Structures are given as C-alpha cells and as structure tokens.
Simulated assay, not measured.
Amino acid sequence: MHATPPLSDDALEDFSPREVTLDGVTRRVHVAGRGPAVIVMTEMPGISPHVARFARWVREAGFTVWMPSLFGRDGAVPQVEEGIAVFRRACVSAEFRALAANQSSPVTQWLRALARFAHGECGGPGVGAIGMCFTGNFALTMMLEPAMLAPVLSQPSLPMNDPAGLEIAPDELAAVAERLRREDLSVLAYRFEGDKHCRAERFAAYQAALGDRFVARVLPDSAAHPNPPPFFAQVVASPHSVVTAHLIDEAGQPTRAARDEILGFFRQRLAGGA
C-alpha cells in the first residue's frame, strides 16, 4: 500500500508570487525559502501539487526556490481534458520548440536571465535548476549562464518526434560541454526505463555529447507510483515523472532516493556540501 499522492489543488499559500520582468517579458514566479537559489521548472501540464511538493523539499533543504509559471493553471491537479488543452497550446507556442531537434526553446533565454537575477538576490556560489518533462532539457541550456552550477534533467521529453533528438542548438551544446569540462561540473539526469516520452536513445545522445559529465540514472518501471493523477495515468500512460507524479514517498523507494540525490547535488554545488 503506497502513500497517497496529493490529489487536491494546491493554493501555494506558502510561496510568494512575484511578477518578474526580464528582457522585456513578465512572468509570475513563486518564491519561497532562504539560501542559494534553485529554479524548479514545472513539467507538463503545469505547477501541480506534486511539483509544488518537490519545490518544498528543495526549500526545506536550505534553498530559495524560484518556480516560474510557464504554462497551465498553477496549483491544479493534472486532469485529462485541461491537461491536453495546455499541452496543445504549448506545442504551438513560439516560446517552445516541441518538435524541433538541434534548437533551443526561446524561453530558455528568459530562464537564463532568471538564474542571473535570482543569484543576484540570493547570493551564494551560484544557482541550481531542475527541468522536468517538457522543460527537462532547459537546465542544460541554462548552463550558458555563468551563475548556473547545478543542472538536473528529469525525463527530458523534447523534441517529441525524435527519440534521439536533443532540444538544444549544436553550438550551445558544444559551449556547455566545454564549460562542464573546464569547470569540472556535471549534469544529473533521470528517467524510467520504459518511459515512452524520454527513451534510451535520448540519454545515449546526451552521453555522446557530454561524455562522463552526463551522469545518467535509469530507474526500473516497477519503481513508479501505480496511481498517478488522471493526466499521467491516461495521457502520459507510462512511468515518467521521477520526482513528482510517479514518486513513491516511502523509505527504500528508488524515486525517493533519486530525490535525495538531487537535493545532495544542490547542497554539494551550492552550499559547500552542508
């Protein structure tokens, strides 16, 4: 009997909503905590209670969470019809490159500016970031911002029409690879073995591009929560969301171990291992 996941909308009352304008674009960002900044980028179809739960774990680990609203209805449990509508809008949005390999989504420019802004406010050695699903690769592109030190890719799912494609421009990928080598940095990445949306071919492509700087974790499908919210059960329809909808918050579970490894990675890079 697994612990019941969050199934009610989350009011996000313990976060401070801020309207942040960068590069002429204003977005709502939910901020909470103290310490070095960690940017938590939501999976499709928006900032669900599961995404907010992960953000709270980051906050409790000693960081200031910056959680930008990129799509969907903030705090909502992912339902089928609403989730499909959000997904379709995002796929045709000029901000994302859902079906284009070897290109970086324009929204990553704003996210790099957010990392710079958050570092200026929060201080510390630098900034961490995690992207999930639709935003899964964004933390890698954000490594073009010098303040970014701790990138995590959780089930990166773009481009959607090419299992081996990478959602980053080749020159930017080369620049990131060089920075990782030069500064002795690494990228953590997670997926479930049977994930239909983030397949083995994608991790192999990252490995080819980044070498041993790309640290991959592949979890067995049996580690996924068997009762995720409706959007994940009916639309995603495979083990997918490692630290959110498919996480089992119980001792000894691989998904909880993945969460703890991510928090430890942020501590090591941003808080001197404290």
Rank of each mutant, 00 (worst) to 15 (best):
L7S: 15
D9I: 04
A11H: 02
L12G: 05
E13H: 12
F15Q: 03
S16G: 05
E19P: 00
V20Q: 11
V20E: 11
T21F: 13
G24H: 08
G24L: 14
V25A: 12
V25C: 11
R27A: 13
V29Q: 09
G33R: 07
G33F: 05
A37Q: 11
V40K: 03
M41K: 03
E43H: 11
E43V: 05
M44P: 00
G46C: 12
I47L: 15
P49K: 10
P49H: 09
V51E: 13
F54S: 04
W57N: 07
V58S: 03
V58Y: 03
A61M: 09
G62D: 01
T64Q: 03
P68D: 06
G75Y: 02
A76H: 01
Q79D: 12
G83N: 07
A85V: 03
R88S: 13
R88I: 07
C91S: 15
C91W: 12
V92R: 14
S93K: 08
A94N: 08
E95V: 07
R97E: 13
A98R: 02
L99Y: 15
A100K: 10
T108P: 00
R112E: 07
L114F: 12
R116E: 14
H119I: 05
C122V: 01
C122G: 02
P125N: 02
I130P: 01
C133Q: 10
G136P: 00
L140K: 00
M143N: 01
E145W: 06
P146S: 12
P146K: 07
M148N: 09
M148A: 07
M148C: 09
L149Q: 13
Q155P: 01
P156K: 05
P159R: 09
N161L: 14
P163C: 10
P163I: 01
L166T: 00
L166E: 00
I168T: 13
A169L: 06
A175V: 11
V176I: 15
E178R: 15
D184E: 15
L188I: 03
R202A: 08
F203H: 06
A204G: 06
A208I: 02
A208N: 02
A209C: 08
G211Y: 01
G211Q: 02
F214V: 01
H225V: 04
P226W: 04
P226G: 02
P228N: 11
P228M: 13
A233H: 07
Q234H: 13
V235A: 10
S238Q: 01
V243M: 15
T244Y: 05
T244D: 14
A245Q: 14
L247I: 06
G252E: 11
R256I: 10
A258G: 06
R259W: 05
R259G: 12
E261I: 02
F265K: 07
F266K: 08
A271T: 03
